[in-house]
Amino acid sequence: PSVSSPPSPVALPPFFMRGSIIQLADGELKRVEDLKTEDFIQSAEISNELKIDSSTVERIDTGQSPNAVVIQFSVGELKAQVCVEVLVEYPFFVFGQGWSSCCPDRTTQLFELSCAKLCVGDVCVSLTLRSLK
């Protein structure tokens, strides 16, 4: 008997698929699975509009949609509280660790992207707008 997946509430972005080509801010091309923390930091340093921020996972709750979770982050030095609802397989990049998701098995199954388990206390790479003056 075949088991079909429930419809996803959010379209899965294609760029997390293993082998996807990612262009860094300096023009260098890398595969998504080869990205390192330094790649994000250096790209953000070059960017005029974006700056990198640390977002610490504070809570992970069940979402309203099937296969969804609500992740509460504490963002930046001001520790602003931000919640995002994503599918369990949605990967985040954890500083010094790499790709992590709430359901790494599903991420690996769907994207062929090796993943660790995203846990409370993990510090994820995120972006904010630089102040425009």
């Binding site: 294609p14 996807s20 080509i21 262009q23 990205l35 994000f40 921020d53 977002s55 990049f93 995120s126």
Partner: peptide, 25 residues
């Protein structure tokens, strides 16, 4: 005619969640 497909290239920032700016007034 079948044109060769170009490999899509994604910008680095598309991989990173964009969270609300935390600047104060």
């Amino acid at each position: 005619n079948v044109e060769p497909r170009s490999v899509p290239v994604f910008p680095w920032h598309s991989l990173v969640p964009f969270l609300a700016p935390t600047q104060s007034d």
